[in-house]
Design a protein around this nucleic acid. Structure first.
Lengths: 201, 201, 201, 201
DNA sequence: ATCTAACCGAGACGGTACGTCCGGTCTTCGC
DNA sequence: GCGAAGACCGGACGTACCGTCTCGGTTAGAT
């Protein structure tokens, strides 16, 4: 009698017998369809048909479309986790932020922004999952790099580094999600110029 | 046959005969339902039933759920348009941004974030409408205030003020949409401290 | 507070607005499909597709496939209601029973036997509806004719005419439903010979 | 390669290794479920679950639900095969038909009528199997008894005994399958009275 | 006594149909 | 002619079963 927290609403499928072929086909189909059309037009039936899979197989392993995209992005998007350390903070930030800016234009991140973040507005579970498994790891790596810079005297000692990360990356998300202007290389330069130096000189 | 510019795809309802009572009831119902439940659960049929209105009455005047919310927010949310000018830029920004931060917690902005911005990810028309009728007016007012400050020497001469507006407000949207942390008063202070002074001192 | 017998589980569609075109298309499609394939292969989706109709339109007006067939047969099968009266009982019975035997071989009665009677075994409501709206009217007409014959001295006075109707028609149903032998003209002759004269002479 | 007559579509399970426990559990489960609910609600998965058996074990030995019921009824229903011969035909018929009438009310025959005969309307194979293994043996025994009676002068010489069997038993099936009236003892009396003596006296 | 073939329980798989919900159009009233 | 009402066609939803398949585990019969 340990922890009966989860009452197991459905008899819990056995992951050992799971078909990896079906899993990959579903992730592929979801990303493809999300790239081809808009997220709102992404349907479970469409994914099932494209993947050559029964709908039950999807519902057995994922609770929602968003969960599929989340897993797809987690698995396919590991490459954007790298964070350089050349000793020059501004250069390293420029490198990394440029990489992020470019990723925001890729089909994978089209699915990310159009699908997941939109869905997160209507589903707290998705919101939490997006933060925990996509945003947090990348923020942590950035903070790690900033911590070294702060120790090296490249940054003010009195600032909270999590706040700085927000100030740097938020403008990229702002343009991505509000569609005011496209996310470009020059935006990265502008952000770094303003945020590091300050608007008042 | 005066102005055949728009070919009137559907027999063009006459706005003079429009029922203001029905219009208000629909806007109310949309906002109420969006506040009570999540945007994904907001349906045309639900709005029609709550408003005591036929579905056709909705489709006659609005092309989509998002359009209803947009009009509701435009009409109900004029209060956040004020921008103070006391002569002290930082104080005025703090006043205005605090006001925005508080608005982000209101039910009206729940509809805004949960509904419109999410829908904008899947519909370029909505995205454009949100920018044009909600964001742009507020950004313009801010730029106007910043222009005075720049002229008064309170800001560096070499910076683009639209970029500065982004840097200031983007972090608020970042937390609103990514749900990493709540939008608070102290976040406003932090943003102003970092953005005006710069992270490198 | 008169009779709240039916609690109206679903808000009761308005029959005045019903589309007669859709109704006929559905009845046609159901009979066609039931004739082409076996009843077990008759599906709501198949009927909807063939009739060019939304599934909801079917569910709005009929509770089951069997109810559709029942209505179709009631409406299309009125022709077998005639019962002759020439003054000669045996000749009239032979005429009528031959007509029934022929009907049992028609596509309409294929649907009847394969569909309705089979379904009636699993659904008391269908069973009752079949008896009330298909069997009873025909039995009553037969009893009416037999009553005249009994009054004319053509039949024993001590027999129950409902029982006699059963004895006459049951063998036709026996072969129809148990598929032992085909229903033929000669079976009618045999039945009349045995039932009217008696097996012991 | 001895006898390639049947090409063995599936690798031909070995009956010697068959689990009698599983077989009995499946037959029991099928009859129980058919008694508890209607045949339409009887599913392979339900049988498998109730019997504590894998679905494959069912499909290995039976081609369909109906085949299971058929085997169950064949095995459990041998008791109605007895046919008495006291020398008095009418008495013997009354005895046997009363026994059949009683059987029609038992749970076993609920499965028979609700399941098999209904299914036979949609599946010629089932129809044939029902006739061959259930109806024919009983009819043959009845004909055998009638033949003796005919030889003893208790019946007309010019009648076909198979037709007479139909006339006697068909009314029982008529009520069983059409649910007009319940099958009772008095029905047996009425049938014998009418069929042996004739309706015209 | 061990090996091995196959039956066993279990259940994941690709599918089909279910009955429901909602989208967006159309039609019919009453005002 | 607008507004309320709601039936219509269509299509996605999430579920239940279908019949097939693939796993260990068990249990013979042959070695």
């Amino acid at each position: 009698m340990a922890t009966p927290s989860t009452p197991a609403p459905r008899s819990a499928p056995n992951p050992d017998r799971r078909s990896e072929r079906a899993r990959q086909a579903i992730l592929d189909a979801a990303l493809e369809l999300c790239g081809e059309q808009l997220y709102a037009g992404l349907t479970m039936e469409g994914i099932a048909k494209r993947a050559g899979v029964g709908k039950q197989t999807i519902y057995r392993w994922w609770p929602s479309k968003a969960a599929i995209l989340l897993e797809a992005i987690e698995e396919r998007g590991r490459s954007t986790l790298d964070f350089p350390d050349t000793g020059n903070l501004e250069a390293d930030l420029r490198t990394q932020m440029t990489q992020v800016a470019q990723a925001f234009a890729s089909p994978l991140f089209a699915a990310y922004s159009k699908g997941l973040i939109a869905a997160a507005q209507s589903d707290p579970d998705i919101a939490k999952a997006v933060v925990d498994s996509i945003i947090k790891p990348r923020v942590d790596l950035c903070i790690e790099r900033l911590t070294k810079a702060q120790a090296a005297g490249e940054l003010r000692q009195d600032i909270d580094l999590a706040d700085l990360v927000e100030l740097l990356y938020a403008p990229l998300y702002y343009r991505l999600l509000l569609h005011t202007r496209p996310v470009t290389q020059s935006q990265v330069d502008t952000i770094l110029n303003l945020a590091l130096t300050g608007a008042t000189k």
